[in-house]
């Protein structure tokens, strides 16, 4: 039995400890917001926080999170500044990578409330987006960090 916390609640799962955390979240715990994209930690769609650090849940054996605190996209409050900025900047296209992008962005802003472009490059470089929402993600992170230069969406 593996016991860990997910979004503030204790969860117990009886699975092989080598099972990636991603599949436990998705299949055993019904939290399908974390996405499968590559299975190799290359795309970031599966990003969750483990004890506050953004990690790729597709390459994290669930046995390794025994006793740890996991936060998924479902655990980010609806009124979180990052989510609000994502809506204002109208970031999402297909939306598949966005939960992972948001988890990386939330972790970045926690560590560095007013990141510069280089900080964003570095923190977000592990999250792929095939639709090409990078520019809007950058603006949303600046906006969520209270960067005064970014107001509202870049609408025509």
């Amino acid at each position: 039995m593996i016991i860990f916390q997910v979004n503030g609640k204790e969860r117990r799962v009886d699975v092989s400890p080598d099972t990636p955390l991603l599949w436990v979240l998705r299949e055993n715990l019904g939290l399908s917001g974390s996405k499968f994209g590559c299975g190799e930690g290359l795309c970031g769609a599966c990003t969750v926080h483990i004890d506050g650090i953004p990690e790729r849940s597709c390459v994290t054996p669930v046995g390794d999170v025994q006793g740890k605190k996991v936060v998924t996209i479902e655990g980010i409050p609806e009124n979180h500044p990052v989510k609000k900025a994502w809506l204002v900047q109208e970031v999402s296209q297909c939306g598949y990578c966005q939960p992972g992008q948001i988890m990386s962005a939330v972790a970045l802003l926690k560590k560095k409330p007013k990141p510069n472009d280089a900080d964003i490059d570095s923190a977000m470089s592990g999250n792929l987006c095939r639709c090409g929402t990078y520019g809007r993600i950058r603006r949303a992170i600046h906006a969520a960090g209270g960067n005064a230069a970014v107001k509202g969406g870049d609408k025509s």
């Binding site: 019904g30 399908s32 917001g33 996209i73 994502w86 809506l87 970031v91 999402s92 939306g95 939960p99």
Partner: peptide, 23 residues
């Protein structure tokens, strides 16, 4: 008008159901 997308809220909170999420 640059109206906001109706599907954005579900795409940022993990509730949008993609094929891979079907159960």
């Amino acid at each position: 008008k640059p109206l906001h997308r109706l599907d954005s809220p579900t795409k940022i909170n993990g509730t949008a159901v993609f094929g891979i999420d079907v159960t």
